Amino acid sequence: MSETPVAEMSFEQAIAELERVVTQLDSGSVELEASIALYERGAKLKEHCEAKLNAAEEKVAKLTLSADGAAVGTTPLDAE
């Protein structure tokens, strides 16, 4: 488990650590107290990743471009 504060991690760092946390928890070889700490860290990592994805989605939604490359307004990503 990394000592880097979750808030300072990039999306890629956080998702990689979240995968390691899940692998450790799935192994069943971690003691109860360590499992609780891993679960708490995993929850923070998940929240951080979701926030990063939401921020990226908002940026993309704001940048809808016309055929000539000019920004024409905002459109939600799931709108068609």
Rank of each mutant, 00 (worst) to 15 (best):
M1Q: 05
M1V: 03
M1G: 03
E3S: 14
E3H: 10
T4W: 02
T4N: 13
P5F: 08
P5G: 11
P5A: 14
V6C: 01
V6R: 03
E8S: 10
E8A: 13
S10Q: 06
S10H: 10
F11W: 11
E12N: 10
E12L: 09
E12Y: 09
Q13V: 05
Q13W: 09
Q13G: 05
A14D: 05
I15W: 03
A16L: 15
A16M: 10
L18M: 09
L18W: 07
E19F: 08
E19Y: 07
E19V: 13
V21F: 05
V21M: 02
V21S: 01
V22A: 02
V22L: 02
Q24C: 03
L25H: 09
D26Q: 11
S27Q: 04
S27D: 04
G28S: 05
G28V: 07
S29Y: 02
V30P: 01
V30H: 00
E31M: 15
E31W: 06
L32V: 14
E33C: 06
A34G: 00
A34D: 14
S35H: 00
S35T: 00
A37F: 03
A37N: 06
L38K: 00
L38G: 00
Y39L: 15
E40S: 03
E40H: 07
E40K: 05
E40A: 13
E40L: 15
E40C: 03
E40Q: 13
R41N: 02
G42H: 04
G42S: 06
G42I: 05
A43E: 15
A43R: 15
A43D: 09
K44L: 14
K44F: 15
K44W: 14
K46Y: 06
E47N: 08
H48P: 02
H48E: 07
C49L: 01
C49T: 04
C49V: 02
E50V: 11
E50F: 02
E50A: 03
A51K: 10
A51E: 11
K52F: 08
L53N: 09
L53W: 03
N54K: 13
N54D: 09
A55F: 09
A55G: 12
A55E: 15
A56G: 04
E57F: 07
E58K: 12
E58T: 03
E58L: 11
E58H: 05
K59M: 12
K59H: 13
A61Q: 13
A61G: 11
A61R: 07
K62H: 13
L63I: 06
L63K: 13
T64P: 12
T64F: 10
L65R: 04
S66P: 02
D68H: 04
D68A: 12
A71Y: 01
A71R: 14
A71V: 06
V72K: 09
G73W: 05
G73A: 07
T74R: 14
T75S: 04
T75E: 07
P76W: 03
L77Q: 03
D78G: 05
D78S: 12
D78A: 14
D78Q: 08
A79Q: 08
A79W: 06
E80C: 12
E80A: 11
E80S: 08
E80V: 15
E80L: 13
